[in-house]
Computed example of a mutant assay.
Amino acid sequence: MQKKKWLIPVFASFMLFSGIGAMNAEAASVEELTSTAKQYLKAPYRYGGTSITSGIDCSAYTQYIFSKFGISLPRSSSEQFNVGTSVAKSDLQAGDLVFFNTNGRSISHVGIYIGDGKFISATTDGGVAIDSINDPYYWGSKYVGAKRVADFTAEEVEEAKAEVAKAEVKSVSVDFSIYTSRGEVALILAETLGLDTSDTNSPFVDVKPSDKYAGAVNALYKKGIFIGDEQKKFNPGSPMTRGELSLVLVNAFGLTQSGEAVEFKDVPTTHWAHDFVSILASNDITQGIGDGKYGIDDLVSKEQLSEFIEKLTEN
């Protein structure tokens, strides 16, 4: 098979200005932000928890979701209330943080506004859930205010993205006779899971109904296993990292933590994929690449994907 060259972005965070004003985020990311937030509906709640799988509280949840878009938020709801720009209730936009006083003393709950009077947050009784900010039985009377911590429509964003791309994009040669593509991962996962792939009309602009992986991609999208990027692209011809694959496999097979968390040298607890990698390891799906490392940024080879699937189907 002929080698193909791909430009693989090294994604850089768009940093927040601390404390005052709204920050720049990637253009059109507001839809991706809300869809990503909804991906974790029913994730369990735990006071003080920071794990999306074993338990997370409201401010850790907002912090976790925004971190996926290069936006750093403080840890507590009261601290988050002190950043960004105040927004009137009548001017709320999807992506704004909304705050509530549920203890009768101070700011004690935070969520992400997703439009139409709804917000998503980690709740004590139902885990991550969607509620109305005007709920007459509870949230309506607890509402305090809102903050815009990221400007998703800033004119400067495209220029900033261009500068990041210019400075941090590197060209590498990917041999797809050795490494697997996202399209190939979709085909193999859909077959392994026994999904109905007859509907080939996927929501991704770069996946045509005539493409061989269209049905698989759409089936996985419907299951919430693949959500695409902010440009509504699936990128079927791009490679996948072992970190990205850990998230996909955990969601695809409904895995949960089994026993103590498993740590790897190259996957700190602050890494977005930490919990997913730990779940795979705790279920004996992976032992890493040796020397105490998982290979978080390594590209997934065909052989490695085959080994992952073999172990997952044995359990």
Rank of each mutant, 00 (worst) to 15 (best):
K3W: 09
K4P: 08
W6I: 15
L7K: 00
I8N: 07
M15S: 15
E26W: 11
E26T: 05
V30I: 11
V30W: 09
S35E: 15
T36W: 00
A37K: 14
A43P: 02
R46K: 05
S51T: 08
G55L: 07
G55N: 07
D57I: 08
Y64L: 05
F69R: 01
I71P: 08
S76L: 10
S78Y: 04
E79R: 03
V83T: 02
G84T: 06
T85K: 08
V87N: 00
K89N: 06
D96V: 10
V98S: 12
V98C: 04
F99S: 01
T102K: 12
I107Y: 14
H109P: 02
I112E: 00
I114L: 14
I120R: 03
S121T: 06
A129F: 01
N134A: 06
G140C: 05
S141C: 11
K147R: 15
D151K: 03
F152R: 01
V157H: 05
V157G: 04
V164W: 03
A167G: 00
V172D: 14
S173M: 06
E184I: 09
A190Y: 11
T192L: 13
T192H: 13
T197Q: 10
S198A: 01
P203E: 14
P209L: 12
P209T: 08
P209K: 04
D211P: 08
A216E: 08
A216D: 01
V217D: 09
L220T: 09
Y221G: 12
K222Y: 11
K223Q: 13
F226W: 05
F234T: 13
F234A: 09
S238H: 14
R242I: 04
L245K: 05
L249D: 09
A252Q: 13
F253C: 06
V262F: 02
V262D: 05
W272S: 06
F276C: 04
S278W: 00
I279A: 01
I285E: 07
D297W: 11
D297H: 11
Q304F: 04
F308M: 04
